[in-house]
């Protein structure tokens, strides 16, 4: 369980998060939705222990991410950030291998190689394993970055806009893969994902957290949050919810 209590964060004099309180379940997919500047990415960074809040606390399965050694934290929670930089000449398999750094600190063993191979297969990167990253398309590179976060083998996987640059097929495949990963089981992970595609949230998320102006507006099951009145309050525009094959389809008017 991730427990966020009274979390406030400011970038200089500009407040970004205001007294955020949130409980995230240790299984399934939780989607963070909200307009640009709502504080979604900042919240993920605070949870991952990469942005120190001005006030409030974060606990990941009881662990304070700001009080433990960096590598210990990185074995508990992985964060895929937006537009990360990558060194040129780095190959896909090597990038994914970096996900094992918190486990081996520069001395990889057979278990690390096994997890890297599994991550490459899971994200359909076997054929691209030896390709330098600077020869890949944006979408292929994004998949490699997600595979690196996956290879970190953490109970918690936080993904900031992972569908950026992905075509519809790969976006669907990635969400399906995350959905499988987040099911209960020995390798099950809890996935928290920032999404701008509300229909992706409707289709794949178990729970949805809607944010606006650094505050949580709603946090509940996907069907409860993805209602026209809540979405209109969050995004300041009109929506229509259309039932489709047992799920909700969100149409912007």
């Amino acid at each position: 369980m991730i427990e966020v209590r009274s979390l406030s964060y400011a970038a200089g004099a500009t407040p970004i998060l205001h007294e955020v309180g949130l409980d995230l379940a240790p299984r399934g997919i939780t989607a963070l939705i909200g307009p640009n500047g709502a504080g979604k990415s900042t919240l993920l960074h605070c949870i991952a222990g990469l942005a120190r809040p001005g006030a409030g606390t974060v606990r990941i399965d009881g662990l304070d991410p700001f009080a433990v050694p960096d590598r210990r934290r990185a074995r508990q929670v992985a964060l895929l950030q937006q537009s990360p930089t990558v060194a040129s000449r780095l190959r896909v398999a090597e990038l994914v291998g970096f996900g094992r750094w918190p486990h081996h600190a520069g001395r990889p063993g057979p278990e690390d190689a096994r997890v890297v191979a599994e991550a490459l297969t899971a994200f359909e990167l076997d054929a691209l394993a030896a390709r330098p990253l600077d020869t890949l398309s944006g979408g292929q590179r994004q998949r490699a970055m997600v595979a690196m976060a996956y290879a970190q083998a953490t109970p918690w996987l936080l993904l900031d806009e992972p569908l950026n640059a992905l075509d519809p097929r790969h976006a669907r495949d990635l969400m399906a893969r995350l959905h499988d990963l987040s099911r209960p089981g020995p390798d099950g992970r809890a996935v928290v994902v920032v999404l701008h595609d509300i229909n992706a949230a409707a289709l794949w998320a178990d729970r949805v957290v809607a944010m606006k102006d650094g505050r949580v507006i709603a946090s509940a099951g996907a069907d409860e949050v993805l209602r026209a009145e809540i979405l209109e309050e969050v995004f300041d525009t009109r929506f229509e919810i259309v039932p489709h094959r047992g799920r909700q389809l969100v149409v912007t008017l």
């Binding site: 990185a74 060194a87 750094w101």
Partner: peptide, 20 residues
């Protein structure tokens, strides 16, 4: 050198991987 390899991924990614 191994830590510098991680650092070359950029400060945000490197910190996310647990590098000081």
């Amino acid at each position: 050198a191994p830590a510098l390899d991680v650092a070359a991924l950029g400060r945000p990614t490197a910190r996310g991987l647990g590098l000081a």
